[in-house]
Simulated assay, not measured.
Amino acid sequence: MAQLLTLEEFSGMLRNLYQGPLENIPWTTFLDQLKHCLSSKYATFILRPPSQHVDGLSVNTAGSSEAVTASYNQHFYNLDPFVGLPNRQVITLAEFVADTDWLNSEFYKNFLEPVDVFHILGADINTSDGAQCRIRISRSKGDPPFDQRDKDLLTLLLPHLEQAVVLHMHLNRVESERNLYAGAVDQLAVGTIILDQDGKVLQKNRLAEQLLAEKDGIKLVNEGLQVGTARDSQVFRQLVKQALLSQKSCNPSVVEAMRVQRPSGRADLGIIVRSVPPSAWSEGKQCPSVVIFISDPEQESSAPQEIVKALFDLTPAEAQLAMLLANGLTLDEASDALGISRNTARAHLRSTFSKTGVTRQTMLVRLILRSVATLG
């Protein structure tokens, strides 16, 4: 029987439920609390039911093992009779399957009886945008069966669980898009750093982390950025200040640029500062306010050779030469690097010109660096 909850306790459960999508393993806190409230052995939330093509994705309370989950995904899901429940309706196993059929089923005898599970309370949630979720609460054979109070508690939570799933799906889409765009920027060899409304660093991509670690023209000091000389830093702070003012006043995005000399003598860094268009509902200090783009001329193009080869129908030797030229080598330097004669390099280059439709080496470099190959 479900424990009687105070309003404060029920509010705490809802808080954990909506916090669930932000946990490293979603909803573990809520499921543990639900397991305790329903005096059950396990609580399992199946985010993606298994099929012949993909494994299921489920979250379990402490006490259930990965081996049991893998066994269900690989074999027993086909035998599970407690599936296909009416949408958004809480049902006990006893209402769905007769006790004799349950006790004699292979699923019970070979999968659940060994882990001492007999009583199950569950519900299926099929959202409007295609998610199919299942929640299952289980008890041992010696425990009392689930009653109406247990069903009522889960019924109260079900609409909130569905809404939390919708939020989880939305956050996953946003995260996937962010990772995709961040990966594309990484491939283009552009460092990106996002600042908050106080000019503190919120986020940075892989290349930006590398440049900050080198401390050669740009470095991190007290969560803020310091660039070049004292004069460079002064100019940079002013550009960031202008971008922040533009962002706060909702003016069109300000874009400013500057070059920064590096103490090592390597090529100057190019820096662009621009304000981030605010969301109408953005609040708090953790909102992106300014983005910094950093160009390092000494970063080699990251276009994979195999993609360049396939994209322009080049031979392996032609693709190797083209990539060396794209990374700034002269024809003589490239032929030395490849261990071939200058005449052979010139023959590869003529063949590459013919295949790509360009007539000069600079045009070839521009074609490669502006192609989708750099996103591969």
Rank of each mutant, 00 (worst) to 15 (best):
T6D: 03
R15Y: 06
L22M: 05
T29R: 11
D32W: 00
L34T: 08
H36Q: 14
F45D: 01
L47Q: 07
Q52N: 07
A70D: 10
Q74D: 12
H75C: 09
Y77H: 14
N78R: 15
P81T: 04
R88C: 12
F96I: 06
D99P: 14
D101Q: 12
G130I: 03
I137E: 07
P144I: 07
D152E: 10
L156G: 00
P159N: 04
P159Q: 10
V165E: 07
L167E: 10
L171C: 03
E177A: 14
A182G: 06
G183I: 08
G191W: 02
I194E: 04
N205K: 10
N205M: 12
R206A: 13
L212I: 14
A213E: 14
G217I: 02
K219R: 15
G224H: 08
F236T: 10
Q238C: 02
Q242S: 07
V254Y: 02
V255R: 11
E256H: 08
V260P: 03
V276P: 04
P278G: 01
Q286M: 08
C287N: 07
V290L: 06
V291M: 13
P297L: 00
P297S: 00
E298W: 00
E300Q: 12
I307G: 02
F312Y: 15
L314H: 13
T315K: 12
P316Q: 10
A322Q: 06
L325C: 05
S341I: 03
T352H: 07
G357L: 04
L367V: 06
I368T: 06
R370F: 00
